[in-house]
Design a protein around this nucleic acid. Structure first.
Lengths: 338, 338
DNA sequence: CTGAAAGCGCTTACAG
DNA sequence: CTGAAAGCGCTTACAG
């Protein structure tokens, strides 16, 4: 493996000192009163040699690393994928070096990944959807790294969340209204997916109950099916509960929709199902059963996140809830009311 | 910002030399014949201090960085999201440090990101779906970094691809067979999405034509609609071409499906459309028009990719095409034949 | 206008 | 069984 060119190689070729090369290449040459002629020569030779600075050496020497870390449960998911993508773009726009790693909802991997971010000398770590954000915040604080929670809240660092209660409330109101309109009378409403104890599920469940209460109704406990976030257990548990159409379903995440649809496909009357989903997917929106989706406002969340990052103040108590965007599904032509 | 603990801090507290601390913490203490008692003490104190090694310093000093880079067009996409996620998992399993960055199909960003990977001292760069992979490979080679292309091929580095021709051939055969069965006679077949000149579109188009030729048919040039990979131009151009049902559509990517569905929704008879899609999405599979999807074999592709990475040999000519997995869409109960 | 020099935090051959 | 020391490639105050 041919050794990469260093500032010493460039210095030799340009017949200047390594220090001068360094300041030309990192743009501080004017401040150091190096002549433009020298700067041009050094830049030309560096380009010819395909020189690329060694980040390890450069970051070691500099006072600040400008590294900003993010851990995220998954990439393979519209919501978290959009978060990761937008995070990178916004970090780069600020001259920061984003380092993202995906922790697959594994608590140990989350913690190890956070440690790794400390090792990368991250100045700030965005902890997205972590199962135990406070454990990570403690690790960060011990190392002098700012932590900010995203998507799921913690007590030891500020949190930027979706307004899960409000989104679920509005979604459930729609579900109540549309099922009554389509079927001519109240039908059983189910809440499917997620895990009780998880903050987001708790908040959405609260919104679900509140909307039912507004309508003078209450939820049947056996219609709350929360076996987690993957689709197989959702399909299994919902299948055992044997729902009968007509009915309405609040799907707590698009992954839950995958499970729900397997059960719905087996029903004698799939057209007797109406569904609302917390989270958004363009194709799920085209399902004939879908009436609305609560799209989490990724841009709004990240705007708030970077406002916290840009401002130094980060009170641990700060907690921002960003409203979701309610997307009505197109009403398929073939679907009759009632 | 409190300074992070260093090996010097631990050394002082444990009353040993910094060198001894270093070898205890990186596991080479047995080789250096340091006593277990000393090692235990150092480990305990390091844990108490929340010590985390400084990667910049450690990687600078070591001979190898163990960093492995990947550039990827998007995270917010089932296919590329799955690639990024699996890449991280497999790299970690090998003790490597994956660094991924998302380049949003921007040629300049791709090149800048590749430069950045060289600066991170990456030993290898996986170039995924790049618009100009050879420009990046040249940069890598100049810096002594191995490059491997994924998803789109280049001439200067080995390439791991989907077997686009074969996948499109099988998908089109299905489309021919199912439209003839459902409508009782051959109907117009359209190819929608992607860009002519792009390797993958070219190969899939070749498969499309080959399957038509097998059936003794040929494609109408005006039925090839390839205005790129985003959904808005697909909807616009397909809308202008005003397709009439009954018809069959080969959608070149799930993003194309989004555009196609906007047009289909406006047709007098959406049920007169059959669609096959290159690429997979669980919800797109549930569209009533969808008959089959070609799921790219991400696991198979990455297995091959890491076989190249693990083995030192990387002949630039090497080109592997991994077969796609054909997923038949569930046949909706409400859909009548003919 | 530019160079010599110290030092970032680590690793590892070498000496004992 | 352990320490002293050199050096990875850079940056930047300091001296001239």
């Amino acid at each position: 493996m041919p050794r990469r060119a260093t500032i010493y190689d460039i210095a030799r070729l340009a017949e200047v000192s390594p220090g001068a090369v360094s300041s030309v290449l990192n743009g501080t040459w004017a401040k150091r009163r190096i002549s433009r002629m020298t700067a041009d020569r050094v830049n030309r030779i560096a380009a010819e040699q395909g020189y690329a600075v060694n980040f390890q050496a450069s970051m070691l020497r500099r006072e600040r690393s400008h590294v900003i870390g993010m851990i995220v449960p998954k990439y393979d998911n519209r919501y978290f994928g959009a978060i990761a993508e937008r995070f990178e773009t916004m970090a780069r726009a600020r001259g920061l070096f984003p380092v993202i790693t995906c922790t697959r909802r594994d608590p140990d991997l989350e913690f190890e990944a956070a440690r790794e971010m400390v090792s990368y000398q991250a100045e700030c770590l965005v902890v997205t959807g972590a199962t135990d954000p406070d454990r990570i915040a403690a690790l960060c604080h011990a190392a002098g790294v700012r932590a900010i929670n995203l998507d799921l809240p913690g007590r030891l660092a500020p949190s930027v969340l979706s307004d899960n209660f409000d989104g679920a409330l509005r979604l459930t109101r729609l579900l109540v209204r549309r099922t009554e309109a389509d079927f001519g009378a109240p039908v059983p409403l189910w809440f499917v997916g997620g895990r009780v104890g998880d903050n987001n599920t708790t908040e959405r469940l609260r919104g679900f109950h509140a909307a039912l209460a507004e309508a003078g109704r209450s939820a049947e406990p056996s219609h709350i099916v929360t076996p987690g976030y993957s689709s197989a257990p959702v399909a299994a548990e919902l299948g055992r509960a044997a729902p009968a159409a007509p009915l309405g379903i609040f799907a707590n995440s698009t992954i839950a929709v995958e499970g729900v649809m397997r059960v719905v496909a087996g029903l004698p009357d799939p057209a007797g199902v109406r569904m609302a989903c917390f989270d958004w997917d363009p194709f799920a929106a085209l399902l004939p059963q879908m009436i609305a989706m609560a799209r989490q406002d990724v841009e709004g969340m990240l705007a708030r996140l970077f406002a916290l990052i840009d401002g130094e103040e980060c009170p641990a108590a700060a907690r921002t809830e960003i409203p979701c965007i309610l997307e009505l599904a197109p009403r398929p032509s073939g679907r009759a009311a009632g």
